[in-house]
Design a protein around this nucleic acid. Structure first.
Length: 198
DNA sequence: CCCTGATTCGC
DNA sequence: GCGAATCAGG
């Protein structure tokens, strides 16, 4: 496949929309995400931020050459001095209430005797995020506590005192404890991103 | 492990 | 110009 004008256009469009390279590649077909990224760079639109301000120039010493043609010794000096005494704290707790529908959210249920925490005025989770969560819960893997791994979403669903309780279990993304959808409601950015900078 | 983009360099 | 291999990071 070659980069026809057509395909380049689509590439630009999708990249501009913030689509990931892999998704673009998938859409285009016949190319890998590497090809897409390579093209993006060649087109000079690697950086999605506009050139308004000076970008924090990163020092790229990259002193390590890559002699692949010559040889591939792969010395791999791995000290591996890592003994991580991880107490493994249990997953965060609080978020369960956030998963409720927006309506319930509005007037959060206050357990008797529990003082109402300072009502955060900005306590609105984007409806989109909530919808996302609802969808996700339908396809959740419904894992039990023991089935949770390092890369399964640890978002609790349901009441632990019931048999209607499970963990989301969907694949997490980046080191986070939750899947994409649940990350969205777990912690609020602080203000919904309303502006589409472009 | 999954994913992301960034860079290099033989072709 | 192209993109696989690799790097670097979440």
């Amino acid at each position: 496949m070659s980069w026809t004008d057509d395909r380049v256009e689509l590439l630009k469009k999708m990249w501009g929309e913030g689509q990931s390279a892999s998704q673009i590649a998938k859409e285009l077909g016949g190319v890998t995400r590497n090809a897409v990224i390579g093209k993006v760079h060649r087109l000079g639109l690697s950086n999605r931020s506009s050139g308004g301000g000076a970008k924090s120039a990163e020092a790229k010493p990259k002193a390590a050459p890559k002699p692949k043609a010559a040889a591939k010794p792969k010395a791999a000096p791995k000290p591996k001095a890592e003994a991580k005494p991880e107490p493994k704290p249990e997953p965060k707790t609080e978020p369960a209430v956030a998963a409720k529908p927006a309506q319930s959210l509005r007037k959060a249920i206050i357990p008797a005797g529990q003082p109402l925490p300072p009502q955060p005025s900005a306590n609105e989770i984007s409806p989109e995020a909530l919808a996302k969560v609802n969808e996700v819960e339908k396809s959740a893997k419904k894992l039990t506590l023991m089935e949770l791994t390092e890369r399964t979403c640890k978002w609790p669903v349901g009441d632990p005192a019931t048999d209607e309780f499970w963990f989301c279990g969907l694949p997490v993304q980046a080191g986070k404890p939750y899947c994409e959808a649940h990350v969205g409601v777990a912690f609020q950015p602080m203000s919904a991103r309303r502006d589409r900078k472009r």
